[in-house]
């Protein structure tokens, strides 16, 4: 019986991937509601579970591709591979309306640029202090401090190793979780009360999941404003990470 199931899963890899990921997201949504009262967004928990499963997979097989090294879960490798990942990220741009983007105005733009450059500089400095010296690793880790998408996209583009990619994702995920949890607490200090302030926040805080969850827990009406600017964040980061920022690091190192 088990052989039949295993063969079905192996020969329908991508489909198995959809089922497995769906199950993980279902579970994380449940955990988000029951354990954290929705304060930590389901997607963040799902990513943490994913990283935990990658750890289990790596422990079990000794390979470098996490759960995807197990034949049963090989489809997860295709689903989370570069091709589908980039395809899905590009698709999110469809939700951005140029007219609404204009309304964000120059403050949103400045916040967006600061939100890309500042975390990058901080990330690179921390990576440097932890002993990383090559431009590719420094750039990837700095990009991870922008968002957990920009890190791996940048790292893949400039040829970083898998463990550096994983570390950059870890930085981005920890950052997203910090933003989610800290935003409602720090709302008064951040002066989060108007659409404009939400846009500034969305540009600087970056991570879409962190911003939307954090704002939802602060004031639901502010969510679209923050998320609108934050949706540009990944695009700007993916554009600048492997180009301007990488060259800047390369020039310094």
């Amino acid at each position: 019986m088990w052989e039949i199931i295993e063969r079905a899963a192996e020969s329908n890899g991508l489909v198995t991937g959809f089922a497995v990921v769906g199950l993980v997201i279902l579970l994380s949504g449940f955990l988000s509601r029951k354990l954290t009262c929705g304060r930590i967004q389901g997607s963040a928990i799902a990513i943490l579970i994913g990283l935990a499963l990658a750890y289990v997979g790596g422990r079990y097989t000794g390979g470098s591709k996490g759960l995807a090294d197990l034949a049963f879960f090989s489809g997860v490798g295709l689903m989370g591979g570069n091709m589908l990942r980039d395809f899905a990220i590009v698709a999110t741009a469809f939700e951005v309306h140029p007219e609404e983007a204009k309304r964000a105005g120059w403050v949103g733009g400045i916040a967006l640029v600061l939100g890309t450059v500042l975390p990058f500089i901080v990330g690179v400095m921390v990576a440097w202090s932890f002993g990383y010296r090559d431009a590719v690793s420094l750039t990837t880790l700095g990009a991870g401090a922008i968002t957990y998408i920009v890190g791996p996209v940048t790292g893949t583009a400039i040829g970083a190793e898998s463990e550096i990619l994983a570390l950059s994702i870890a930085i981005g995920v920890v950052k997203a979780i910090l933003v989610m949890v800290a935003t409602p607490v720090a709302a008064r200090f951040l002066r989060l009360s108007t659409p404009r302030s939400a846009m500034v926040f969305g540009g600087l805080a970056g991570t879409v999941s962190g911003v939307s969850a954090g704002l939802a827990a602060t004031d639901r009406r502010l969510v679209p404003y923050g998320a609108l600017v934050a949706t540009f964040h990944t695009g700007l980061g993916c554009l600048c990470g492997p180009s301007i920022l990488y060259f800047a690091v390369k020039a310094i190192v």
Partner: peptide, 17 residues
């Protein structure tokens, strides 16, 4: 895209990270 990112997380080299 979030599910795809979850799938991406599942195949990272966590031991080294």
């Amino acid at each position: 895209y979030i599910p795809v990112v979850v799938a991406m997380a599942m195949q990272q080299n966590m031991l080294v990270a």
